[in-house]
């Protein structure tokens, strides 16, 4: 029988069943990735493009299009997640 999952802000996710434990090399790789992920105040925001929904239309947004304006960039766990 399917297990009931608790509703919360973090959306439940799937993944491969019986995934192998990470090898030492893979663990090292993910550490390298975390180092690259550093963003710092006083430094340039990394540019990106992303699909978006805006006033009835699906659009593509690029951060650098907003140079010359103040930008608030907000991340959140997921649509319909209560908070």
């Amino acid at each position: 029988m399917a297990e009931e999952i608790k509703a919360g802000c973090a959306r439940p996710t799937g993944g491969p069943v019986g995934e192998k434990a990470k090898t030492k090399e893979e663990t090292q790789k993910s550490t390298d990735k975390e180092v690259k992920a550093m963003v710092t105040v006083g430094k340039k925001a990394p540019d990106f493009t992303a699909p978006a929904y805006h006033k009835g239309k699906f659009i593509s947004v690029q951060l650098s299009e907003f140079l010359g304006k103040w930008v608030i960039l907000c991340f959140y766990p997921g649509d319909f997640t209560f908070v």
Partner: peptide
């Protein structure tokens, strides 16, 4: 991930809020 807010274990993003000025500086 680039902004350091992706929670790999949960597969979602934390509540991150960045103020970026007109020069693109955080």
């Amino acid at each position: 991930s680039v902004f350091g807010v992706y929670l790999e274990d949960e597969g979602v993003e934390a509540r991150g809020r960045f103020i970026i000025d007109p020069d693109g500086i955080i």
